[in-house]
Nucleic acid binder design. Sequence first.
DNA 1: CGGACTTAACGTATAAAATACGATAAGTTT
DNA 2: AAACTTATCGTATTTTATACGTTAAGTCCG
Lengths: 248, 248
Amino acid sequence: MTIQMNQSLSVDCAVFGFNGKSLKVLLIERRYYKPDTHLDPLKLPGAMILENETLPEAAYRVLEEATGLKNVYLKQMEIFSDPKRVSGEELEWINRYHGIRSERVVTVGYYALVKLDARTVAYTTAKGAQWVDVDSIQRLAMDHKQILTTALSVLCREMLQSPVAFELLPRKFTIRALQNLYSAVLGIEIDNRNFRKKILASGFLTPTSEKEQGVAHKPAQYYTFNRNAYKKAVKEKLKLGFINNWKY
Amino acid sequence: MTIQMNQSLSVDCAVFGFNGKSLKVLLIERRYYKPDTHLDPLKLPGAMILENETLPEAAYRVLEEATGLKNVYLKQMEIFSDPKRVSGEELEWINRYHGIRSERVVTVGYYALVKLDARTVAYTTAKGAQWVDVDSIQRLAMDHKQILTTALSVLCREMLQSPVAFELLPRKFTIRALQNLYSAVLGIEIDNRNFRKKILASGFLTPTSEKEQGVAHKPAQYYTFNRNAYKKAVKEKLKLGFINNWKY
DNA sequence: CGGACTTAACGTATAAAATACGATAAGTTT
DNA sequence: AAACTTATCGTATTTTATACGTTAAGTCCG
């Protein structure tokens, strides 16, 4: 057995957004170097790591290029290192596309959460990218479907452990919007009265002076996420899951 | 900017063990290619990734070589990709040691949990490795101190979320031993009466017919971890931290 | 041998959190 | 104006966490 050389390292990002109804992921249509290929056209945004660049830097670079956004929630997931994860025609495509000669490409999966506002949607669509409902995705280029699946499971876990939900919502949001997001991503039903009670009791939401307008029911108050209150609470108490919530 | 080539990928493992009192990590003394070097001698077990090998495979290979154990709890943490994380004399050492010519080494950090029984200790010490108290470690080779620090924080988090503690205990253990482990790793005091109540209420422990012998107090019952009961419980209820424990 | 000592094991009382669900409020739609 | 929808508040019940008292079963030491 020989040590692997002539390999490349890439990053691939599953960029998630929430439109109030369902979870979306950003997909890019790739260009072929020959027209009659049968390779899957849609892929996650990604790039090769450059000299003098760390992996997070590469991921942020990809993300800014794809969305125009700089301060985005971004997190490393796992690394996909199957020696055959890209091979044959796919490897050929990569080498051709990047102008390199690599025998193996190991990729690091990232997942990102963005606020799906009009500006961002305009930017991405102008770039030819598309926001696709995560449930509707059957196949993607290379092993990107697998990366997406991993990202989804990581997102579920994170939603339960930390306040990442707010990364997907606009700055001002209603409690119901937050509830819908949890409900959609986790696929569970939530009692709105208890959810409200729990989330308000946490002290992480600050009410604004604004209310919904033009909705066919009692308009709801808008809140913002109070990150400082959250940080303070984390410091004060260890949060558990397995052996629930002890302080001692 | 150019795409990085001539790079190597390695794995480094923080292997933890618990001796009943404190948390230990397995360290290896590295050999110099010249005697008067000032490089730190102790490092985590690690290896370069081989052709036709995935990263987890590489990590298991390292682990088996270092401990003689095959079925070990092993988990990928994060990737250390600073372009300068090994450079100069350290990079020279790596290239010399492995007989390669690499300009950059990106490493994937793993952490492993093993049961520190007599056989394993004998095996590792015969190999010249040592089990060192984690609190006493000041410096390590390359950026291995940083990898260790990351591993420790991941371990703390995992201990609170999933039953990894049992990977560090012998098959049969007392409730007090489990408590001491939590107490040592998390650095918190735990009320033994409430701990017992909580852990027994979870239904994850199966009592055995054996008791402690020769201890200077009432002998405690030995228990085993009931993994099936745990899996069943996980299925039945989502476990949260941020928005604690809902079922709905 | 007997009392001191230590931890195991059980129990009880209180506080805090989760859950189920009733009732009213404030808008739009028809 | 009645129907409809969701917001918002409230209450009762159950579950879980926490603090801490008590007895049991051994060893240790005189």
